[in-house]
């Protein structure tokens, strides 16, 4: 499973990605997750299954949604406080739930 997390400059998301990766690893699951600036979505979306959106790029969520929809993906917006607290485990559960029950992104 390939996950792409986008934020404004790809900086804050890189810290969050590290925590999410650890959380998956702790459960013995292997995911490929990377963080990028939102403008780079087009370069990575072909090899991505899930697109996560940081709360700092919600201003361009319409564009992000459009790009993702063209590739059959519904972007998942990460809750502000989970993202801010870099709570890897809670984010892991959130990501899994978003994929199970038809996400609300």
């Amino acid at each position: 499973m390939n996950i792409l997390l986008v934020c404004q400059g790809g900086m804050s998301s890189s810290f969050v990605v590290k925590k999410i990766k650890e959380a998956f690893k702790n459960k013995g699951e292997c995911v490929h997750i990377i963080s990028k600036a939102s403008m780079e979505i087009v370069d990575y979306i072909d090899e991505t299954d899930i697109v996560l959106v940081a709360p700092n790029v919600l201003y361009e969520i319409e564009d992000i949604r459009e790009t993702c929809t063209q590739h059959g993906i519904t972007p998942v917006i990460l809750p502000m406080e989970l993202y801010g607290r870099m709570d890897g485990e809670a984010l892991r559960v959130f990501i899994i739930n978003s994929q199970d029950g038809g996400n609300d992104g």
Binding site: C7, M11, S12, N56, E81, Y83, G84, R85, M86
Partner: peptide, 25 residues
């Protein structure tokens, strides 16, 4: 705990953990 989590990003001038985590927003 939040301070410890956020200090490394803060030193690199990234404050999303504080803005969204405390939250300030």
């Amino acid at each position: 705990k939040l301070g410890q989590l956020a200090i490394f990003p803060s030193l690199l001038n990234i404050n999303e953990p504080l803005i969204f985590g405390l939250p300030i927003m």
